[in-house]
């Protein structure tokens, strides 16, 4: 079962961002786009269910912030939901990183055969 699904990549990205500090949904999506030079776009349709999933697994802790209205009031969207990594989330991130590195190593072994052969001989 050797897969690297986009969904798992998204989770790894979000967990990594949260490891740097608390964030809210929209900020996460902007940060992801900015850091990847627009290459990765976590659409809200993916991001929010993903955050919900992290929350229900207790990988993140959440809190609400009252946001002062800057524009015309419509009664909605005045609260921001902040996410931060829980201890369990940190552990999960470590596992994810290890798994990702392992995955990369395997693929590397295939895409640079010279290098892989060299190692085999050395062994």
């Amino acid at each position: 079962m050797l897969t690297d699904q986009p969904k798992d990549a998204a989770e790894l990205i979000v967990l990594s961002l949260l490891a740097e500090g608390a964030q809210y949904g929209y900020a996460i999506s902007k940060e992801v786009a900015a850091r990847s030079g627009g290459q990765v776009r976590l659409t809200p349709g993916v991001l929010y269910p993903l955050l919900k999933g992290l929350e229900s697994q207790a990988l993140v802790l959440t809190s609400w912030e009252e946001v002062k209205a800057e524009d015309s009031a419509d009664g909605e969207g005045r609260k921001r939901k902040w996410y931060r990594l829980s201890a369990k989330g940190k552990k999960r991130l470590e596992q994810r990183i290890a798994a990702h590195k392992a995955f990369r190593a395997i693929i590397d072994a295939f895409i640079s055969p010279d290098d892989a052969q060299g190692r085999e001989v050395a062994r």
Binding site: M1, T3, K52, G53, S56, A99, A102, I106
Partner: peptide
């Protein structure tokens, strides 16, 4: 998303064992 899935965990563990 509300139902904690074991799938991702399995996959990840499976990956380590593949290594």
């Amino acid at each position: 998303a509300r139902r904690p899935s074991k799938r991702s965990m399995v996959m990840q563990v499976a990956l380590v064992s593949a290594v």
